[in-house]
Design a binder for these strands. Sequence first.
DNA 1: ACGGGCTTGTGAAAGGGTGCACAAAGTGGG
DNA 2: CCCACTTTGTGCACCCTTTCACAAGCCCGT
Lengths: 231, 231
Amino acid sequence: MTSRTPRPRERGIPEATVARLPVYLRALQALQERGTPTVSSEALAEAAGVNSAKLRKDLSHLGSYGTRGVGYEVEHLVHQISRELGLTQDWAVAIVGIGNLGRALANYGGFGTRGFRIEALLDADPAMVGQRVASLEVGHIDSLEEVVGSRGVSIGVITTPAEAAQAVATRFVEAGVGSILNFAPVVLNVPDGVDVRKVDLSIELQILAFHAQRRAAGDGQVAAAPGLELT
Amino acid sequence: MTSRTPRPRERGIPEATVARLPVYLRALQALQERGTPTVSSEALAEAAGVNSAKLRKDLSHLGSYGTRGVGYEVEHLVHQISRELGLTQDWAVAIVGIGNLGRALANYGGFGTRGFRIEALLDADPAMVGQRVASLEVGHIDSLEEVVGSRGVSIGVITTPAEAAQAVATRFVEAGVGSILNFAPVVLNVPDGVDVRKVDLSIELQILAFHAQRRAAGDGQVAAAPGLELT
DNA sequence: ACGGGCTTGTGAAAGGGTGCACAAAGTGGG
DNA sequence: CCCACTTTGTGCACCCTTTCACAAGCCCGT
């Protein structure tokens, strides 16, 4: 590394840090509601379930918002993290696929306090179209492009069956949506620059199963764990 | 570091690899249904959305199941990964918190093909108890310990409101559940040895918002992206 | 039987993330 | 005003993960 690097990168926040900021934010908001004025890295780290050094390093990427000997001012930090995460503006969200999960998401009120506005619910099933879910009328998927354009949707949520997901993603992208949250169990193919995050229930369960098996195998005394058989 | 470490660990599969195995498994199962007999690392990597070298290294942790010059036998690999993930046995799952999300999960039939059996649905609301959801009768949360014990539940899913989650987690652990999948937006406190995975919708959205903001800021020409305002 | 052509398995290098430990910097009491 | 105490911000060493690049190994046509 050259010894001269005045600024590492314009606002280069590591991915791992970004992934933790929402956790810190939530903990801070809880403190805020309780009226706590300041918090130490130690206390906040505890609440967020991380190491305090890691927390300090994470926050240092946003700037020096702490006071040595005192800690961090809760209110100020909430504001800074919110700004950094882009929560000072509202993001319009469209959900495609109004099955059980889509409905659950639509009804999940406080999308992390605020910052997100569900603007549209779309489905391919004509029987679904026209129904009211979470005080929104379900539209037909054919109107996707129109809805994205007219309501300024910038985040798309996909809760369709696996088979439909790729097509929906492609349409989202073509319509100008740059951020996609995918609940369908498929790997989406999108052009560079489009941000896709995946939430996959069965993958999580399978990872749990792996560790559970590992535990059961290593354990002589199978505590309260059940029905384990050799293969 | 001492220079002597004969065996890294008995069957030490890296976490990052474990997290990808379910993705490979799904891709392989799709190939299997299409009747494909063998697949190259290149093709499988493409389907799984990863680099082929990474895929080969991942698979090499399970053993040498490929044939040079040919690829991997699909059927065989499906079996090996399933066994490694512990999917050759059935895991009993209990879901606590039968709101919108809990219902959605209960109705989400094929939990990654199979390997998981939803054995119980529990809720604290007396109005909920007794209802049938996904052909199971909702039980009262007071019966948690009894249900876990008698039905051999080893994986607990928490879809309660945030306030209730910690208490449920503690009861799960005390009842002998070693694996918890938490959908409630709180950091769970559990003893060592208990495995908790978190799925948090609003965190995912916030991460997307961060990148979306970043994109919008860096972009001179805001392609089809909408309503962006300076702060 | 042998050589050309693929594809795996893996050393080695590079990159990113984590956590320790401590200097720097602030507070408050005497 | 100074000193003891607290807490932040960060240099550094370690570890995990990713990626490249290539030798080793296997198949098939001749």
